[in-house]
């Protein structure tokens, strides 16, 4: 770790500690907004861990999220809370493993299509199970957790996702992912087991998202399949991550804040127009911000340093030509 990284770590730690004080100031509107922001930051950053470098657009977020929520429905009252969260992570990873094994050795399109309907498939299966075998569709969740505790857990989870992303970027795994994102053929011929790397990352990403679902589940008190497996979550997460920029660890964070605030505002005042917002956001990203805000900032910075280095270097270049 160099000095810069130590500084960033320390600053992030302080920032997290500062944010953790929010419930002391307000227990109402701001805490609710804080919970929703923290949840989406964790999910979209986890999404981008896999989808950013590989460009495989995953729409399985709602499936992972719902899986986590249903772990709480089934275990929340009997098992200790940390165990519940671990089980949620394992279930999320398992689901990612199954979906990934069927699709990840094929093209990105196969993958998108498979994840497109995955949440809906699981919703149908759970509904079917509950109506035919499990008794009733929809269940109450009785877990004794306050909003502030949920908020703290989500903040901690955000920290964990960022740490994981940072560790991955420094490791062989991170390098492998970047190579896969650039050129899968080169990756395979350089000795990278591309299918295994993608699968592993997809599992990590799925596990984190499932834990978010589990942590948020007690807020509903009543859960039915159409709430837990709401495919809108998948699309929102994609938009936030891409809006911010999915190729940088901090990118999704930049996208989550404006989009969540805008979404809350619009769904509060014009509940029928959230679809139009989502649609416009997608078009905006594709046509005006293909690399996201983070990518745009980077581009501008690169252009500037480029101009500077060129100005500095031109005499040397001339010398080289003369030789």
């Amino acid at each position: 770790m160099n000095t810069r990284e130590v500084l960033i770590m320390a600053a992030s730690g302080l920032l997290l500690a500062g944010l953790a004080c929010l419930p002391l100031a307000d227990e109402g509107f701001w805490l609710t907004l804080g919970i929703s922001l923290a949840g989406y930051v964790a999910m979209s950053t986890a999404w981008a861990l896999f989808s950013g470098p590989t460009s495989y657009v995953s729409l399985a977020t709602a499936a992972f999220f719902g899986t986590g929520a249903y772990v709480v429905v089934n275990l929340g009252e009997t098992a200790p809370w940390p165990v519940v969260l671990v089980v949620a992570a394992v279930c999320g990873a398992l689901l990612a493993l199954l979906a990934g094994m069927a699709t990840l050795r094929l093209t990105g399109v196969h993958f998108v299509i498979f994840t497109f309907g995955l949440a809906e498939l699981i919703r149908q299966l759970v509904t079917w199970y509950q109506t035919n075998i499990g008794g009733a569709v929809g269940q109450y969740v009785f877990v004794d957790i306050s909003s502030a505790q949920i908020y703290w857990q989500l903040l901690a989870l955000c920290g964990l996702v960022f740490l994981a992303g940072w560790a991955i970027n420094r490791s062989r795994l991170g390098l492998a992912l970047r190579v896969i994102g650039d050129d899968e053929t080169v990756a395979a011929h350089s000795g990278i087991n591309t299918a295994r790397v993608k699968l592993l990352l997809f599992c990590i990403s799925g596990a984190f998202i499932a834990v978010v679902g589990a942590v948020l589940a007690p807020r509903w008190t009543y859960i039915e399949p159409s709430i837990a497996f709401n495919s809108m979550i998948s699309f929102q997460v994609v938009i936030m991550a891409l809006l911010g920029g999915s190729r940088r660890l901090w990118g999704p964070l930049v996208g989550v804040i404006p989009f969540t605030v805008l979404y809350e505002l619009i769904s509060g005042h014009f509940p029928n127009h959230t679809h139009l917002l989502l649609g416009t956001a997608f078009l905006l990203i594709v046509y005006f911000l293909p690399q996201g805000v983070a990518g745009r900032i980077e581009q501008l910075r690169l252009r500037r340093t480029h101009r500077e280095t060129h100005a500095a270097r031109s005499p040397a270049t001339l010398g080289e030509t003369a030789r």
Binding site: S55, V57, G108, V109, V112, F235, V238, L242, N272, H273, T274, H275, L276, L278, G279, T280, A281, F282, L283, I285, V286, Y287, P290
Partner: peptide, 24 residues
């Protein structure tokens, strides 16, 4: 590959706009 990702995202946009109009 790039066209695939772009067209997927652009048609997501269309999906929600068309759906929004029909809902309205």
């Amino acid at each position: 590959g790039m066209l695939e990702v772009d067209s997927i995202l652009a048609t997501f946009g269309l999906l929600f706009i068309l759906q929004g109009v029909m809902l309205a």
